[in-house]
Amino acid sequence: MSTANTSASSDGKSHVHHHAHHFDSAEHEYNAAKFGTWTFLVTEILMFGGLFVGYILYHERFPEMFKAGATFLDWKMGALNTIVLLFSSLTMALSIYYMQHDNKKMTLINLYVTLACACIFMVVKYFEYTHKLHLGIGPGNYFQPHGHGEEVQRALGFLKDYPNIGMYFSFYFCMTGLHGSHVLIGMGLIIWLIRRTHRNEFSSKYYTAIECVGLFWHLVDLIWIYLFPLLYLVG
């Protein structure tokens, strides 16, 4: 049962994907890769899950302190990033759809748009982080507001009422930091997909890598769906 999948590329240089020798068929290889990816996603959910459980328990214990901490987050930035990430999930799904139809051009366009969305997300995050750290609004013991302005005065006031307010920002920086590092890794993986698509390595018969990176990317989106209301809105 040997299978060689030939991609239908327009330039005549077709790339043939042979499944690895330890698989019975291309389908066997595809399913093994996909199930492996899902198993990895399970470990990812449990890793983020630990942080979510910690957040929920301490939020129940110190609701006012969390509410005070959340006043330093701009919900508009969070909402913008939510929309950008949801849209990037759509374009990621569409890149697979178009490769299933051997439409290399549309696959590439959608992968580039996904990458651009990831860049926008990280730029917004960069501005949020630098603004907070500039004012001394850091995690744990690094919550040491300094300088001038309304935000610093408010932070100093909260610090008197809630001495442990640094905890809110420990959760904020840990959860969004771990999530942001996933976005960066996802960007690297999407660049890898773009490179391989340019080289005609994918076709409607072989697109396993796009499928698996897609699953990873949707999980990153999934985690943000929970992070946005928890950190920015409920507080």
């Binding site: 198993t39 959910i45 899950g49 949707h218 989106d221 769906i225």
Partner: peptide, 27 residues
């Protein structure tokens, strides 16, 4: 919605849904 449609769980083999379900259960 993301899981069912973007991640294809609605259309895929139920084995994948079970794998995902174990993570939610242990969480």
């Amino acid at each position: 919605l993301v899981l069912a449609f973007f991640m294809h769980l609605k259309y895929d083999d139920k084995m994948y849904t079970v794998a995902f379900g174990t993570s939610v259960f242990f969480l």
